[in-house]
Design a protein around this nucleic acid. Structure first.
Lengths: 206, 206
DNA sequence: TCAGTGAACGGTTTACAAAGTAGTCAGTCT
DNA sequence: AGACTGACTACTTTGTAAACCGTTCACTGA
């Protein structure tokens, strides 16, 4: 349910809730406050959303849409090789997670709470990213840079491998540059696997 | 401080504490209970350990020694190639984490609590594993199977890549076999990077 | 008919007092 | 002298009663 398809009143509620969620956090925001901001009663909120959690879920979905959009922009540059695209995508994903954690802690907290309570939203988020990665790898296969038939399994494996760099535990240890450098080396490893498999296949063919 | 170097009374305390930690957890174990089990007063405990947390830390260090020992045994088989050793090591590490989480939840909880309160113990744990990985990679380099000069950076990268499979979040989703299969594919990827770099270097040399 | 209301309900959080616990230390026993 | 004690302190956890919050629903006004 993208925002555009929502009722005008529903959007009003969503905006009011989003502001409070980002300022005070999910737990510290009450339905009364949201209703008050919209000049309506609490009961009326339930005509537009089944529950408080659903308001938060809808908001997190918009955050996801924004993130996917930013990732696509990051790899949109002209003349980027598939390897460069993959590298940029993962570095951008890391940077966005790092920034959200440090600069918008309430947004991070909200996403975490919703993702724990509604695991299917987390799965959809990962699948959306996976699709972007799969596109890059397919392009690499067509160009002969990457090995064939990787587009099916590789995206999930790549997500597994960089998992550590999207986990809050890592954001405390070391500064951004050090972590980005470590991630870069890891991406280099993964890219070598993809390109070397292709090279090996070519040698056998020749 | 390995156990053998400890005072007899200190070992008595450590064993009594370990039993209670594993049965009831760290928080639900009191210094009075430990002292009672050892037929001594609480005050006397502090002649042997600076604090309750230090008792737990010492115990967690023995858990680490056991785990490193098991990992070394897992790669000790005769005629195992470096690639097989690395694969076995990481699969064993995953299996031990999985089993501890499901079969000895209190042990898992204790380790988590100590590792959060004493991050340097976590660092030492990772470094001990890193040393085992580095040995395997050095062996692979000497045999010409792996690329040169990887033994320095690769161990940390490999630990990063498999991080997801030693994190409790993953233990809930999917069964053991499915996760082990996914990990296997990921290890295959990393091994390809190591071996392909070596192959590429050889080609250039020839 | 339908957007909107607000009192009422059950489950949860909060506030604060009572109980408990980690750690100390002056003193005991051997 | 040195292993050991246990009452003591400062802090934390626990029990619990009151306040609060998400959600419902019978009702209102247009």
């Amino acid at each position: 349910m993208p925002i555009e398809t929502l009722d005008e009143t529903a959007r009003l509620i969503l905006n009011a809730a989003a502001k409070r969620f980002l300022h005070y956090g999910y737990g510290k925001t009450t339905m009364s406050e949201i209703a008050g901001d919209c000049n309506m009663s609490t009961g009326n909120l339930y005509r537009y959303f089944p529950s408080k959690l659903d308001i938060a879920e809808t908001f997190v979905r918009t955050l996801r849409r924004e993130q996917i959009e930013l990732l696509k922009q990051a790899i949109d540059g002209p003349g980027l090789s598939p390897a460069e695209k993959l590298s940029r995508l993962l570095q951008t994903k890391f940077r966005l997670a790092y920034e959200r954690f440090h600069d918008r802690p309430k947004a991070y907290e909200l996403a975490t709470e919703v993702l724990v309570a509604r695991p299917e939203v987390a799965v959809e988020w990962e699948e959306a990213e996976e699709a972007v990665i799969a596109d890059i790898i397919s392009e690499g296969e067509r160009a002969g840079a990457f090995a064939k038939d990787e587009a099916r399994r590789a995206p999930k494996l790549i997500q597994d491998a960089v998992f550590r760099f999207t986990t809050p535990a890592v954001f405390h240890e070391g500064d951004f540059e050090a972590l980005a450098g470590e991630l870069d080396a890891l991406i280099g490893f993964m890219l070598d696997a993809l390109t070397c498999r292709a090279a090996k296949a070519k040698l056998e063919h020749a």
